[in-house]
Computed example of a mutant assay.
Amino acid sequence: MNLFSLIYKRIERGIVPVLLLIGWEIFSRSGVLPAALLPAPSQVLVAWADWIFGTDGNTQTYSGRWFFDVLHSFWRVLAGFTLAGLLGVALGMGIGWSRTIEKLIEPILQMLRPIPPVSWIPLAIIWFGIADRPAIFLVFLGAFFPVLLSTIHGVRNCDRNLLRAGAMTGGKPRMLLRHIVFPAALPSIFSGLRIAVGSAWMLTVTAEMVAVKSGVGYVLWDSYYFLRYDIVISAMASIGLLGFLSDLAIKRFAGHVLRWQRGSVLNAN
Rank of each mutant, 00 (worst) to 15 (best):
M1G: 13
L3P: 03
L3Y: 02
L3E: 02
Y8L: 08
K9W: 01
K9Q: 11
R10I: 06
I11D: 04
I15T: 11
L21G: 08
W24V: 04
W24H: 09
E25I: 07
F27Q: 14
S30D: 00
S30K: 15
L33W: 05
A35K: 13
A40F: 05
S42C: 05
L45I: 11
A49S: 14
W51D: 08
T55H: 03
D56Y: 03
G57W: 07
S63I: 07
G64D: 02
W66D: 07
L71I: 04
L71H: 14
S73D: 08
L78P: 05
F81G: 07
A84Q: 03
G85D: 08
L86Q: 03
L87Q: 06
L87C: 10
V89L: 14
L91A: 10
G94I: 01
G94K: 00
I95T: 08
G96D: 08
R99K: 12
I101R: 04
E102N: 09
K103V: 08
I105A: 14
I108D: 08
Q110H: 14
L112D: 00
L112P: 02
R113N: 14
I115Y: 14
P117I: 02
P117M: 10
S119D: 03
P122C: 14
L123N: 13
I126K: 13
W127T: 11
F128M: 07
I130H: 07
A135F: 01
L138M: 12
V139R: 09
F140G: 06
L141V: 13
L141M: 15
A143V: 05
F145E: 06
F145M: 08
T151V: 05
H153L: 10
G154N: 04
D159T: 04
R160C: 03
R160A: 10
N161E: 10
L163T: 05
R164Q: 14
G166I: 12
M168G: 15
K172Y: 11
K172I: 13
R178C: 10
R178Q: 15
H179N: 07
P183G: 11
A184D: 05
A185I: 03
P187S: 15
I189D: 06
F190D: 01
L193Q: 10
I195T: 12
V197E: 04
A200L: 01
W201E: 12
W201F: 15
M202Y: 04
L203F: 09
L203W: 00
T204W: 02
T204F: 02
V205M: 11
V205A: 11
M209C: 14
K213S: 09
G217C: 06
V219K: 00
S223G: 08
Y225R: 12
R228Q: 15
I233G: 10
A235D: 12
S238C: 12
L248W: 01
A249Y: 11
F253G: 00
A254E: 00
R259C: 09
R259V: 11
G263C: 06
S264G: 15
S264Q: 05
N267F: 03
